[in-house]
Measured scan of single mutants.
Amino acid sequence: MATGGRRGAAAAPLLVAVAALLLGAAGHLYPGEVCPGMDIRNNLTRLHELENCSVIEGHLQILLMFKTRPEDFRDLSFPKLIMITDYLLLFRVYGLESLKDLFPNLTVIRGSRLFFNYALVIFEMVHLKELGLYNLMNITRGSVRIEKNNELCYLATIDWSRILDSVEDNYIVLNKDDNEECGDICPGTAKGKTNCPATVINGQFVERCWTHSHCQKVCPTICKSHGCTAEGLCCHSECLGNCSQPDDPTKCVACRNFYLDGRCVETCPPPYYHFQDWRCVNFSFCQDLHHKCKNSRRQGCHQYVIHNNKCIPECPSGYTMNSSNLLCTPCLGPCPKVCHLLEGEKTIDSVTSAQELRGCTVINGSLIINIRGGNNLAAELEANLGLIEEISGYLKIRRSYALVSLSFFRKLRLIRGETLEIGNYSFYALDNQNLRQLWDWSKHNLTITQGKLFFHYNPKLCLSEIHKMEEVSGTKGRQERNDIALKTNGDQASCENELLKFSYIRTSFDKI
């Protein structure tokens, strides 16, 4: 039985969820670079991206490699990797027998973001014989899940209580170790020597080791999670996991709180800001991140802002960003909400898709409305799209047979046209069989910064309504002859009103 693990408890099935942008060198404390989270699957090609990484700022997932063999891993080693800020997950990587050479110096898994409450997941690794993470000293947050690894031993010899604050939620089941077939031998045991430290858990006094050649490092209890030197002297209180010299914040392997210019500090002093819960960055760093993602459509890219001495992905609820200094300031009234469309555009074809934009005031991208039916549609669209004030790209209304009016965009005031449909149009209306009105132009103002209007096959939309939009939106004169079809717009509506004058002759039985 794995020490510190839980057996036999019912657990939810383990679901495996399925960018080499360097964020800056980590400095003297770390020998390499800070790398983003990685999802490495199918083959070993991307694994080489770990070569210079000291910190993975995010998670590391290595999974679904069915053609790899043990010899493929023999020359692979990433000794610079010290810390993973989120979680480490391995799933069905064939041929991998140990992690001792792959990650010989991995010391800390912070667990800032977890995989279903777990910071370390080893699942269905069919050839893994031992973990071998002999320098792993601290899992700051989260638990361990090690399950269905039929060859995995050296679990009962690990004292997880020396690595985690609590072992109650560890789930370590259905491994070879369960069948008591392992016969784990710690260093020196074969020669009758006791080389590794022994600890007591559940009444068992057991030597602690990761492999037959690597003991588990056990520091004096007084050192807590700070770690200790090879001689057993406690590291500085700002260290986490390990250090090369005692009581020196510049000799830590990793930091308990924050890293700044080669030393570990309790908090980031001005003019620095907390970033990702582990390091200090200056304003320029946060500003660069903001600008890199301002026009990016890459998933996970955030326009970072500053709030409460932190550089964070977005302002919290009730705050909006001051564009001059990136500071989050309290909103006066309802907060603006910028919604970034991942692929640059979004099609609204149902109430469900409209709900995804609920509360958005600025759309960074283009909207395509293609709704053919739905219950209580006008009210639903207004509830979900009615706060949109600005669209950076274009607005396209296409084959939306259920629409009679666009009044559900009740606050839309600006279409920038930074991206144009077919390279020309910022407003595009095609084949809307029941569209009769755009907006009530006596109450609604709309500016279209650039781009043209396109109207074709809107049989109940009168040309007068379209011409009014040209005047109000500032697009009059931009359109070419064929942009607004004269014969297919309003051709099934009563669009022309003329005053009919009647004269009559009164007659009676005795007068003409």
Rank of each mutant, 00 (worst) to 15 (best):
G188L: 12
R41Q: 09
H28K: 05
N195W: 12
P269Y: 00
C235R: 00
L81G: 00
I222G: 11
C264S: 01
L89F: 07
C228N: 04
K129D: 03
L90W: 03
W210E: 15
K67V: 14
T140F: 08
N309G: 13
H59Y: 10
I62M: 05
H226I: 08
M38V: 04
K310V: 05
C239W: 00
V305W: 03
E151M: 09
E314I: 03
C301L: 04
D101T: 12
Q216F: 12
H48N: 15
L240V: 04
V34T: 08
Y319R: 02
P36D: 01
N43E: 04
L29Q: 03
S296D: 14
Y30A: 15
V34M: 15
I172P: 12
L29C: 15
M38L: 07
A119S: 08
N179Y: 02
H236V: 02
D39G: 02
G333C: 03
E97M: 03
I56R: 08
R92S: 06
L102G: 02
P31Q: 11
L131I: 14
A198S: 10
L174A: 12
Y94Q: 15
T250M: 10
D159C: 04
G241I: 02
V93H: 12
C243D: 01
I158E: 04
C255F: 00
C252N: 00
Y304S: 03
Y134P: 06
L102A: 03
L96A: 02
L50P: 00
G203R: 09
G300T: 11
S244Q: 13
N43G: 10
F73A: 12
S323P: 14
P36H: 03
C35R: 01
C182K: 13
P249S: 06
S77L: 08
K310C: 04
S237V: 04
S244L: 07
R298T: 12
D184Y: 06
V218R: 12
L155V: 14
D177A: 15
K129M: 08
D178A: 14
N295L: 13
G183C: 09
R263Q: 00
C280H: 00
D288W: 05
K148M: 08
K224D: 11
S323H: 15
Q287I: 09
Y30S: 12
T140I: 07
D248M: 03
C53Q: 00
C35S: 00
V173P: 09
Y94A: 09
T194H: 12
R279E: 02
L289F: 10
L99K: 00
L327T: 06
N195S: 10
C286I: 03
W210F: 15
D75P: 09
E130V: 05
N309Y: 12
G192R: 10
V281L: 02
P246A: 14
T85W: 01
P270S: 02
C234T: 02
D101G: 07
I82V: 06
V305E: 02
G188M: 15
L44E: 10
T157A: 11
Q204A: 12
Y319Q: 09
C153K: 14
G232M: 05
N150P: 14
L136Y: 01
I139V: 08
S213H: 06
E180W: 07
H226Q: 08
S143T: 04
F91N: 12
L99C: 03
S324R: 11
I201T: 05
F78I: 12
Q299P: 14
Y304G: 03
N242E: 13
P270A: 03
C252D: 00
T45P: 15
L136S: 01
F66W: 14
F91E: 02
C315V: 00
K251L: 08
H212Q: 14
D288E: 12
T211V: 12
N309T: 09
R256C: 02
P36I: 06
G58I: 00
N150E: 07
P104K: 01
V144F: 02
I56F: 00
C53W: 00
T189W: 08
R208K: 13
D288F: 07
S323L: 10
E57P: 00
Y273M: 15
V200I: 10
T250P: 00
K294M: 09
E266W: 15
F91I: 07
N295E: 08
D248A: 04
Y259L: 06
D248S: 05
M83G: 02
L50C: 02
L114M: 07
S317K: 04
N309M: 08
T229M: 11
K292P: 03
Q245S: 09
V265A: 06
S324A: 15
Q276V: 10
I146P: 00
P36M: 06
L90S: 01
G111V: 00
I312R: 05
K193S: 05
Q287E: 11
N170E: 06
S225R: 10
G241P: 01
L81T: 07
K80D: 02
K294G: 13
P220M: 02
N257R: 11
T107C: 05
N105Y: 05
S324M: 11
C234N: 02
P336R: 07
F285P: 01
P70I: 09
M137S: 10
Y259I: 07
L327K: 15
C328T: 00
D75M: 13
F78V: 04
P334T: 11
H48V: 09
G241C: 05
H226T: 13
D247F: 09
N282I: 12
N42P: 02
G58W: 01
H290P: 03
I201Q: 10
Y118W: 10
E124C: 03
R263W: 00
P70E: 05
D248V: 03
S98L: 01
S77N: 14
V265M: 11
R41W: 09
K67H: 01
F103Q: 00
F66N: 02
S77F: 14
L120N: 02
N43F: 03
Q276K: 08
L133K: 01
L60N: 00
V108T: 12
T229P: 09
K100R: 10
E130L: 04
L133M: 04
L90N: 00
M321H: 15
T199L: 11
C239I: 00
N179S: 06
T107Q: 13
S143K: 13
I201S: 15
Y118K: 06
C209N: 05
L164M: 14
C153L: 02
D178M: 15
E168I: 05
Q216W: 07
C243V: 00
K310H: 03
D247V: 09
N117I: 12
